[in-house]
Amino acid sequence: MRNVYFELTKEFNAKGRIAVLASGQAVVYHRIAIMSKDGDWIIREDAQTCRHVLDVLAAHGARYRMSAPLEPRWLAGGWSSHFEFLDEEGRRIRCDFVSRPPRLTQRETEALFTADADPLDPRLAVIGLLPLIRIKQTQRAKDYAVIGELARRLPPEAEAELTTDPDRILALAGRFPSTRPALRAASSGAGRLAVVTELAREIDGLQLRDRDRIERYEAAAEAYFAAIRRERVLDRPLAEAHESLVTLAGRLLPEDPRDA
């Protein structure tokens, strides 16, 4: 058996790179840890890509989970789309998609689709270490342990700016100019406690920013979610559910809650 999410990535990219595997399965690909049961992809933001992804998912018998429709109109506003199916072994496969990953610029996102793929199979496009670290700066504490391990793989100057390991900050301090408070604390000889404190402050700030961002989307989705439940959209086959979600979202889901 192969990693089902690696295989799905190859299916999505069968005719060219439209999906880049990210988050937890990228952590597996980079041989850091096995800790995610879901698949997450960053996809190109166009109608053809969305149709192809939906076709692949439909062929696997996938259904929508409560989410925005997989359409450029809402993907462009930072929304995510979520699906689920059972594989032939009866295992739950969850598939999540965005086209505007948080904390990456548009240019950085576009670069994902031209970066090097797996040397053995060009269809297996996986996010690189640097953008992976940035998208993992979430509100979840466990992501920061993974960031520390990912950062070890980077050149020292980049590691110094991104690591979450206070011992690595102390080891790298003073070697490169930096405005990062934790590095400056280490360079100034303020001691380990000062470094740990600055690091905790930094991580807390990242977590709060991510939480604020997500709360906007949750609030914006209330009426839309209510309509989905009322009309039992998620019980329907994928193509039918998609059309219904697009109709409901057109009425009830703000395209970009960040504009509010």
Binding site: S23, G24, S36, K37, D38, D40, R65, M66, S67, G78, W79, S80, S81, H82, R92, R94, D96, V98, T138, Q139, R140, R211, R213, I214, Y217, E218, A221
Partner: peptide
């Protein structure tokens, strides 16, 4: 542990 997993681990509905 499927039944005990949170509904979302990524995207804009994490935390729900």
């Amino acid at each position: 542990t499927n039944d005990h997993d949170p509904p979302y681990t990524h995207g804009v509905f994490v935390g729900l």
